[in-house]
Amino acid sequence: MAKTATPSAVQAFTIQLIVSRFNPETDEESRWESFDVEVFSTDRVLDALHKIKWEQDGSLTFRRSCAHGVCGSDAMRINGRNRLACKTLIKDLDITKPIYVEAIKGLPLEKDLIVDMEPFFAAYREVKPFLIANSKPEKGKERLQSIENREIFDDTTKCILCAACTTSCPVFWTDGQYFGPAAIVNAHRFIFDSRDDSAKERLEILNDKEGVWRCRTTFNCSEACPRGIQVTQAISEVKAAVLRGRP
C-alpha cells in the first residue's frame, strides 16, 4: 500500500490591515497604523486583530466578548462600512488592497477601536425597552399571544445592541441628540407587542423633534445591521403608528 500523503498545509496569506489608533494620553487625534498579518481563508477580521494584539502590538485596544456575532461588542467600521469584526470573513473583502478598520463614528472615541457607548444606551433606556402591562396574567399562566401577533414585531426582537446601525446614520453623526435607529427598533419591539400596554407612551416619546422624524431614510442602518433587521422598515412602521396615534 502506498503511504498516504500528508495533507498539504492549509494555505495562509498575508494581508495588510490599516487600523485607526488613538491613545487618549498622547494623541490629539486618531492616526492610521499599518500591520501585515498572516491569515487563513477561514479567518475573520476579529482573528486578524487578535493576531496583531497577541503577536505584534499588545497595546491595540478593541472590545469583543463572545466573538460569534451574539453579544454585539465588536462593531467597527471595516472598509468604510459598519460590520461586526467577528462576522466579517477576510476572504470576503478585497485582500489585494489594505483593509481599513476604525471605530464606529458618532460616539465619543475612548481608545483605538473603543467608543463610549453610554449615549447610545441612554437613548435605548429612554424608550422604555421593557414590558409594561396593566393586567395580571391568569394565576399560574403566562401571557398568551397568537403566532400572528408575535410575527408583527419578530424582526425587531433580533437586536443585539451593537450600535452598528445607529453609528452608520448620517443624521446621528451630526446630531447626537437623535434617538438613533437602535432605540427606535427596540421601541418598535414593545410598541407592537400585543401584551404591552404602554405603546402610546413610547409613541409620544418618539414623536419628538429628535425622535422618528429625524430619520431621513438613508437606509445605512438596514445595510449595516449584522442581524439583518429591516431597520428602516421598523422606523417607518413607528412613524405610521405615531400618525395613527396607536400601534
Binding site: N79, R81, K105, F219
Partner: peptide, 8 residues
C-alpha cells in the same frame, strides 16, 4: 474613511 453607503 468615507462611509460606503448605497443608493439610499
Amino acid at each position: 474613511t468615507l462611509y460606503r453607503g448605497r443608493e439610499g
